[in-house]
Simulated assay, not measured.
Amino acid sequence: MIPAKYGNLLADILVPIDTKQYNWYVATSECIVEHISLNEDLLPELQLKGRELDERIKRRPYYINFIDLKAFPVGDEVHDIETYEDFLESKSEVVLLIADTAYTTIYCKDKDTIKKVFENTRNFGFENVEYITDENDSRTRLAVY
């Protein structure tokens, strides 16, 4: 569980992932930038280059209500992924889902990277961190809503 507060939490979560080496699909997002109109979302576009995502998630504090991000290697088609099976069959390397501010799920195809993400979340003091397996994953869709 991540803290329900303004900060750069996406940057914190994604420390072990080189966000710049991917293009990102933003299926849905409501991350409100601090001291900006409530109508300004951190990630209003459907697609972002990694450098642009990296800059935005580090620039100013924001509050995450929900977000649905999918990472694809540069040069591959960027699109939404709806199921775990679609994720496995796609070129997507990472899926990040945050719902209701606190419920965070990260899928990653690279086992070394997911281990680093797991350790990173513990280093930042995030609570109730656990690995998702076929036995404990109750999701039927890879979406926050």
Rank of each mutant, 00 (worst) to 15 (best):
L10E: 01
F87T: 00
R141V: 15
N39P: 05
E93I: 08
V78H: 01
D76P: 05
Y63W: 12
D137E: 06
Q21N: 11
N65F: 15
A99R: 12
K116E: 11
K20S: 10
N123P: 09
K58W: 07
V33Q: 02
M1F: 12
P61I: 08
P61F: 08
T28E: 15
D41K: 05
L48I: 06
E82N: 14
T113A: 13
T105N: 13
A102G: 11
S138M: 12
G125Y: 02
S37A: 09
E52M: 10
E30D: 12
S90N: 01
N65W: 14
Y84F: 15
E119T: 14
V117L: 01
K109H: 00
S29G: 03
R59E: 15
E82I: 09
E82Q: 13
I81V: 08
Q21H: 09
D112M: 06
L10W: 00
Y6S: 05
Q47E: 14
E40P: 05
A143I: 13
I13Y: 02
S29N: 06
E55S: 13
K115N: 14
R59T: 14
H35F: 12
E55N: 10
N65I: 11
F124S: 08
V129H: 00
Y107D: 04
F66Q: 09
G125R: 06
L97Y: 00
Y131M: 05
A102Y: 15
L10V: 01
L9F: 12
V95K: 03
I98H: 05
N65P: 10
A11G: 09
G50W: 02
P44H: 03
T133W: 03
R56W: 05
Y62P: 00
I114C: 04
V95S: 07
A11N: 13
K109F: 01
F118W: 06
E130W: 05
R141Y: 13
R59A: 15
L53A: 04
N39F: 15
S138L: 14
E55L: 10
N8L: 13
T28W: 10
I106T: 03
D134S: 11
H79W: 09
N120S: 12
R141I: 11
I81G: 04
D110Q: 08
